[in-house]
Write a protein that binds this DNA or RNA. Sequence first.
DNA 1: CATTTTTTTTGACCTACATCAATTTTATTC
DNA 2: GAATAAAATTGATGTAGGTCAAAAAAAATG
Lengths: 194, 194
Amino acid sequence: MTNLLTDYVAKFITLTSEESEELVKNFNEVKIKKKQFITQPNFTSRHRNFVVKGAFRSYVVDDKGQEHTVQFAIENWWISDFNSFIYQHPATLFIVALEDSTLLQLDYEKEQELKKKSHKFETFFRIIAEKGLAFEHRRIIFNLTHSAEARYENFLLSFPHFVQRVPQYALASYLGMSVEFLSRIRNKKAIRKS
Amino acid sequence: MTNLLTDYVAKFITLTSEESEELVKNFNEVKIKKKQFITQPNFTSRHRNFVVKGAFRSYVVDDKGQEHTVQFAIENWWISDFNSFIYQHPATLFIVALEDSTLLQLDYEKEQELKKKSHKFETFFRIIAEKGLAFEHRRIIFNLTHSAEARYENFLLSFPHFVQRVPQYALASYLGMSVEFLSRIRNKKAIRKS
DNA sequence: CATTTTTTTTGACCTACATCAATTTTATTC
DNA sequence: GAATAAAATTGATGTAGGTCAAAAAAAATG
């Protein structure tokens, strides 16, 4: 199960097999059942989560009780309440498993040690933070500049592997629209095609 | 002018005065006149920009010719087309000076060298990327969960120093609403107070 | 596999915010 | 500091997308 992680890490930094093992041994494998929560508001997020199997969804609940999806994650993606994790303060997000899943969890303190000990590991975490930031920038820009329908189309093209695995109500709120409206968009497309 | 930068860096990492000088000497000071562009679509962003004086705004222009503000920056903030900078591919954003300004620019290649040479410098860039990512996460979550009026109120509270220095049309598009609607929100508030 | 629960769809109606156009106010420039 | 340009305001009107409620479809569960 840790092969997936070593392959992932190898995309960004070059490690000897000893270094690779040193990194990976700090992660704990945990199995999470569908519908199980791994993060909840008011509890501090103690680890960074790498998905080796399954799917997750993070979301906020607003004042009116509405859920808004913040992120999805499947194999090879990270998921956390990032603000809670890096500042080690209480979370505001829920993170729930959409399927029976397996995570590799890296403890906050262990991560700090890894970064302190090794320049390479520091580089790794720098790169994934930068890539994450670039990703969120693209997301913000796209959301500012496109209609609900265009955002959905773009999601289909950009994340085809996610579409089959996430419920529509979760996708709708990720894209910033109501479930009903997303349903209408999909239906309109279906009619157009026939 | 580089004092502002050394003070800024000192908030995140502890450097000897030699290290500090070594870092800072890689930045070039440049003066930018109001309305001057430092980034434009199709040109690759070659440096990271630290604002020591003045104010900037980055924005996209959509298919309909509408401008959407992506970011503001005043003293002690960074500004760039981050996707263009880190991947060294053509920019999609405009970045323009809102006032006569002074920047400290760090060249892409010099940044790579700095990070390679020094574990501490690597740590610095990792921290600012993480903080940036955490910031954008909060922004996405807030935007997903709040009305136009609440987003404006929140901006007033969170960035009081920006409000006086950025034009309203730019703020409106940053907050994802029309100029007219922002004007109405402000006006409604003024009436309420009297 | 029948029952219950969850998710998606559909229709009727509604509203937050956009658009357009004209006017006023505020900056900029010579 | 008068002239011009840029930004902000105001009113009238339009619409993308929301809300509510009920039905249909799909998935979960014993």
